[in-house]
Design a protein around this nucleic acid. Structure first.
Lengths: 209, 209
DNA sequence: GTCTATAAATAGATAGAC
DNA sequence: GTCTATCTATTTATAGAC
């Protein structure tokens, strides 16, 4: 029989690392399948197949289909959130245009990997309650951030800061989704410039920036 | 037995009218169910139930579920399209802001009935090929219209008219969807003003409007 | 023309062998 | 830990009585 020492310290024991790798494979496969086929057609069987894992194994890593999507959404949101947090700490100095540019760039970068997946997540996922909650919480944070900016920054000229902030956040998010995932996508640099122009001119009341 | 005359001219024969009414009932029910529950959860059984028609009857009017959605989408697009067509004939005089206002108002009006349904149609329907084709054709028409406007109108100050037109059309459409269907919708009149301000300032290069 | 009952297909999820 | 085989639920769609 195997000694206790052997059992307690099997050599090069890759348990956790291997499991983590499989999780990641499943997640990558799900990202691909959802992005390519949409949420409904992205079945667990197809995800398992692409991850080259049996359906049974998939269910050992995730309790159900929505849990996979939830993790995908959570990771995406967390990346954006962290980037925004860094921005928030760095800049209050700078022009309004400069701040908006940083903001827009974060959103575009955050969507570069897989625009189609992001579109699926933004459009089809939110019906699931927990995903919806996370998305809307993140959105509220961003609106609050922009609203504060519109209140404090000397360049800002808007009457209702709350509504204006909602418009700005929605504009950036939705247009990046739409125009990077379109069949004929707008090039990233140009999109950045145009979006910055749009929201800056809006926020500064149409005066010179 | 019944005479030939009786068979050919049954009195007050309501065949077509009644059928048309049933079709409309099914369509209304589908609009409600899709808008309330989304596309996937909007099953044919639920639609039939709400229309107070048996499932068998429903399939006598529509060959499948997607055909119902397609008709819903088509009707919506046609309404917007006709309104846009009227606008196009009436105005080339007027300020750029005035034209944009008319444009924005059309979109808002076109979404007033049932914002949630429209959001479902915009988000979940497009995966179906035929619907996608119609939606993108209508969108191309609108982009072409705005692009021409940006090219000809003296107030317009944009470099790349095509990209600018895409941004403007997408902004109006997406923000109306998002902000009228949100849990805390932005009031229609205010939304109109803010959207007009945003796209006008963008199109006029940030100068005074 | 409308209904009930059900067929056919496919999804998500689980059991149990290995 | 991973697999195959299978269950259960649900959906679209059809058949056939009335």
């Amino acid at each position: 029989m195997t000694s206790d020492r052997r059992r307690i310290h099997p050599r090069k024991q890759p348990r956790q690392a291997r499991a983590e790798l499989t999780r990641q494979r499943i997640l990558d496969a799900a990202a691909h399948v959802f992005g390519e086929m949409g949420y409904a057609a992205g079945t667990t069987n197809r995800i398992a197949e692409r991850a080259r894992v049996s359906i049974g194994s998939l269910y050992q890593y995730y309790p159900n289909k929505d849990a996979i999507l939830l993790e995908l959404v959570t990771r995406h949101l967390d990346e954006g959130r962290q980037a925004l947090e860094r921005l928030r700490e760095e800049t209050l100095p700078g022009t309004l245009e400069g701040i908006f540019r940083a903001h827009v760039r974060i959103v575009i970068d955050n969507h570069r990997d897989d625009p189609h997946l992001l579109q699926v997540m933004a459009e089809q996922a939110p019906r699931a309650s927990e995903v919806l909650e996370r998305v809307s919480r993140y959105e509220r944070e961003r609106v609050a951030y922009v609203e504060e900016l519109l209140t404090r920054h000397p360049d800002a000229r808007v009457r209702d800061t709350h509504v204006a902030a909602r418009l700005i956040v929605a504009t950036v998010e939705l247009l990046v989704h739409q125009l990077t995932a379109a069949p004929d996508p707008v090039e990233a640099g140009r999109l950045e410039n145009e979006l910055v122009a749009m929201v800056t001119r809006y926020a500064t009341g149409g005066g010179a920036v």
